[in-house]
Amino acid sequence: MSDATLDPATTAEPIVPKRKSRFRKVFSKDRKAQFGLLVLSLFVLGAILAPLIAPYDPNEMSLNMMAAPSGENMLGTDDLGRDLFSRILWGTQISLFVGVATVGLALFFGVLLGLLAGYYGGWIDMIIMRYIDLQWAFPNFIIAVYLVAVFGTGLLNVIVAIALAFLDDFARVARSMVLTLKEEQYIDAARVQGFSDMRIMLRHILPNAMAPIIVLATVSVSYAILGEATLSFLGLGVSTDTPTWGLILADGRSFISRAWWLGVFPGLAIMLVVLSINFIGDALRDALDVRETDF
């Protein structure tokens, strides 16, 4: 990092304020991260306020079919006369929820497995790592498709399927962090004081291992959103009456030669959200000083 300050005054300060100021420094300079924060906040706001600000019911059909974007229907209507803007707005709720819930699940179980494997080593490590190696044998997307195929579609199944596909990434990162940190003197110190393994893992190792995990989690949210959209697009998604972005695109696909807006806007929403999260993730990587090779 070329912009890392090395003068003794700042390095001597405790870690937390330094990180804070570093966040401010990175985010105040990074235009892309600012764009990301702004756009993502707008989408979050839109998702929360959807019931209040959506001009139409997202599933309400009308005779005004495949109308081009106009004052009446900001983004036009679909083949059943449903308002595209309202549908996309409601779809934001699903996308963001799936993104956050999926990563929350993968983070919790993945980090838990990684902590156990790295901290205890031995046969626990071996079993966990064999499982993770096995998961490596499948491309993530194929895992998700296969799980949805086996257990069926629906919100919960989609979340579990994508979370399982991401599990190994978190376990791997957490394990490698634990292996490095385990050798630190302050861990020995904690052990000598007679703290329990649980306490050492959660209070001493985990907080110091968080930087790469936070960055991975941020980027994973964007992949989870892409994954959900893709599954929905293939008809393996949440359900057929919930307007999700992937499903809106799949529904509109047959009409794109006559109604381009059906093919353009839902995808644009996906891209803007994913792009914003990636911008933020990149800035976080700088702020937390995480190398890309940590993954």
Binding site: L226, F233, P266, I270, V274, N278
Partner: peptide, 14 residues
């Protein structure tokens, strides 16, 4: 960034 954020099926539709 755009390439990574764009769903491939959307690019296909475009």
């Amino acid at each position: 960034f755009l390439g990574l954020s764009m769903p491939d099926f959307w690019l296909a539709i475009l």
